[in-house]
């Protein structure tokens, strides 16, 4: 477990990547703000939810440029115990976690694959963004995690998703996917802060070769999407070996390009050099989000187009 006082030493290797490094370290001492997404599929009148939560003593404020997202005070309020949660009117999720689906831009009528879908925050966000009219294949390789995904799809009243339990790396061919989201398993460094100490996956599963898994998932996603289609690769970690290096691997193996994207949160270009290795110049079009600049979890997002 990484204690908070060990964080400066741990993150030191990223000093060159993280803007205003000292401010970043200071920010880790603050707990994560609480946000939720309002589910209009089930709740046609927003004020029912907002007034209901306010009656419980909660302050709820809309987040600028993030339609349907609200920030909640106090941040330790148990949203999961509320009637609004039980009825599927809200989905608690951190703000930056909404970015991959914004980059994906799913449309009604399209085939969408969410390759590592559980517990379903992004799958349900895709369903909402398309008015429950895209064809969503929500996949996760683990049965216990799939159960949580199925429960959330049911809770949010989503009728546009089917669930599967394949290993992403060998997901079968045959569906002409228009867009694929690879929100890859990662070491989770972007989540690290007070209250989340010890959550880093690299420590829990010391022998897991995350970059190898991530490359396998991304290459398969690319091979599954149709020509001209979009693959969004995202993680909630800072480590370039799990981000740029993974996308660089794809760019060298396949005919792909990174598409620039507008995001409603402050961000920085992906790195094009790390520990002596030079990456494909397209990686500057990927985006890095940092906890202290977004009041949220650190994220990496690359929007990739299949050219051939």
């Amino acid at each position: 477990m990484l204690e908070l006082n060990e964080a400066p030493a741990y993150f030191e290797r990223y000093r060159e990547i993280i803007p205003r490094f000292e401010e970043f370290l200071e920010h880790l001492k603050k707990p994560l703000p609480l946000y939720f997404r309002l589910n209009e599929l089930k709740c046609p009148r927003e004020e029912i939810v907002l007034k209901g939560l306010e009656r419980q003593g909660v302050k709820v404020e809309p987040v600028p440029n993030f339609p349907k997202f609200y920030r909640v005070e106090p941040r330790d309020f148990p949203l999961g115990n509320t009637e609004e949660y039980y009825l599927g009117y809200i989905y608690p999720m951190t703000l930056s976690s909404a970015l991959p689906v914004l980059a994906l831009e799913p449309k009604p009528g399209e085939y969408i694959l969410d390759m590592c879908a559980a517990p379903g925050s992004k799958t349900t966000q895709i369903a909402q963004a398309t008015g429950d009219r895209a064809v969503i294949v929500a996949n996760d390789r683990r049965l216990d995690r799939l159960a949580a995904l199925v429960a959330n799809l049911k809770r949010l009243g989503v009728a546009s998703a089917l669930t599967t339990i394949y290993r992403g790396e060998v997901f079968p061919y045959g569906v002409p996917f228009d867009r694929i989201l690879v929100d890859a398993p990662c070491s989770g460094e972007g989540r690290y802060r007070q209250g989340y100490e010890g959550e880093l996956l690299y420590q829990k599963e010391g022998h897991t070769n995350l970059p190898a898994i991530q490359k396998g998932l991304l290459v398969r996603a690319f091979d599954l999407v149709k020509v001209g289609g979009i693959v969004v690769y995202s993680t909630c970690t800072i480590n370039p070996e799990e981000n740029e290096m993974v996308v660089d691997y794809l760019l060298r193996k396949r005919q792909a390009e990174i598409v620039p994207c507008d995001y409603p949160l402050p961000h920085h270009p992906g790195v094009t050099e790390w520990e002596g290795r030079v990456f494909h110049p397209d990686l500057a079009k990927a985006a890095r989000f940092f906890p202290h600049e977004t009041e949220s979890v650190g994220f990496f997002v690359a929007k990739i187009k299949r050219l051939f």
């Binding site: 064809v135 989503v158 669930t163 599967t164 339990i165 045959g174």
Partner: peptide, 21 residues
């Protein structure tokens, strides 16, 4: 209830756990 896809056949080759609501 499951959204009407452009074509159902390609999806039917998947081994599914749940379909729709």
């Amino acid at each position: 209830l499951f959204v009407k896809p452009p074509e159902l056949r390609p999806l039917q080759n998947l081994q599914v756990q749940t379909v729709g609501l």
